[in-house]
Design a protein around this nucleic acid. Sequence first.
RNA 1: GCGCCUGUAGCUCAGUUGGAGAGAGCAUCGGAUUUCUAAUCCGACGGUCGGGGGUUCGAAUCCCUCCAGGCGCGCCA
Length: 537
Amino acid sequence: MRPKRDMLSEKIVETLRNAQIEIPESHEIEFIKEEKFGDYASNVLFLLSRKLKKNPQEIGKEVLEKIKDDSDYEKIEIGGNGFLNFTFSFDFLRKELKKVLEKDYFFFDIGKKRKVNLEYISANPTGPLSVVQARAGAYGNALANLLRFVNYDVFTEYYINDCGTQVDLLEKSLIYRIKELKGIKSEFPKGGYPGEYLIGIAQEILEKNLPEDKWRSFLLERIISWQKEVLNKFGINFDNFIYESSIIQYQKKILEILEKGNLVYEKEGALFFKSSLFGDREDRVLITKDKRPTYFLNDLAYHYDKIKRGFEIIINIWGPDHHGYIPRMVAGMKSLGFDTNNFLVILAQQVSLEREGEKVKMSKRGGEFITLEEVLEEVGSDPLKFFLLLRKPSQHLTFDIELIKKATKENPYFYVQYSYARICSIERYGKEKGYDLDKLLEDVNLEYLKTKEERSLMLTILKFKDIIIQAVKEFAPHILVYYLLELAEKFHYFYEKERVILEDLELMKARVFLVFCCRKIIKKILEILGITPLEKM
RNA sequence: GCGCCUGUAGCUCAGUUGGAGAGAGCAUCGGAUUUCUAAUCCGACGGUCGGGGGUUCGAAUCCCUCCAGGCGCGCCA
């Protein structure tokens, strides 16, 4: 038996199906923004009208005939332009609301326990994390939670490029600093990292009198643990940190597989992969003419490792500067025999920073650099997460440091938290008055919920499951954030008009039930977003 | 030059698989509290959806073109 998912959209589809109405493939149920038109709308009339070459209004009349009277709806109407509009009956909403506090209300099974590897941030170990990486972090973390919530088996991973040119440059920059401290003049390496953090590490090395062959590993260890510490402060945890140096053992294997498929050739002393056969604009180098493996070869080795570990879905979140890199990776995955429908790359667009209207450059090798650590200290991890998650990842994002430092009124984070705190406050007040609320709710009669504020809040609460489905489908946690704002708005609106704790015991029970449903949803979404709800403000 | 992303209210952004008078927050202005937190609520102001053309019964959404910004086009990572 298919588990019931209790989505309002599903209810409508069921209604149409029961009435023997043909439902075309691209049928959609959407929320209606304008309350006066109804709650949910179906585009079925447009679709049928195109197919049957008939006016939507005419088809609508026939459809309404077939549906006849269904007491779960207050009304079903044909909109002016041809939408089929459904307004649920208050009784139906009451019946549905009753389910929200049940234990298994949050049961979803979209993922069916499929194994997902989600890799994100994966910053080079060459310096502090920036707010740019914080965006990918907040997004990746929320996406992982969201996918877990709908029953995917998600494994999060952070890839550390501890080999290669950038790390060499970092080491050279360190050596420059050590010499500097010793009073030896030397030239700063071209393209090196001028950040002051290297001076501290250089000092430590001198104090500990470490031998030169230990410098590099000490340096990497310092920076990586520093990055981990900041991630920890930000409230983002990974199931695994994986080192490039640990996967280079698969280089040979990759070359073997590609050779077997006749997908490599030598040219001008370098070894090329025929990625252009798979839609890439040109073939790509695997081994350079001076016989060094490229980053790409190691990346293939890393993904070979992911496949070998049995992941069915592989998701990478990359910065926008990597978009040109996607075709060759897709080509590689195909060559390794992985179904590329299950290989997803999500680009998190850049974050540009302003300080009082002036652009701030964000480059480790450049001058000014705003670290995640600095922003966390000023703003706090939860408001920052909320702010970053408010935008869809494909959107370029700018914010003013001074503005986010203020981060009080401007941040809708507090609007949502306040609604949660108010509900907790209601509970405390009720207990103070001597009511055992949990006990009282065992026998609640929702007939007492009658006002339009109550109805509006109920409907918004019940949209939750449809919102989750939509957010999963689009990999878009920001949809949850916007929903959360709507839910908080509906709650505040209700709260202004109606009291919850009052003399009329039956009415109080019904309203407590309502706000507890609301709280349960807010809490769950905040949990998905990686944000801790505040019981007091 | 080619490719990708972006351009929506003064600011930051939703809406972009075509659909209802184009939305929210902030800012500005006006109003609301003997009662569970006023970090709230109500109202007003504010738009050539970058410009132009096209497809359509219907376009912010699709197509073409132009303009502006960002990013990429390494045998770097």
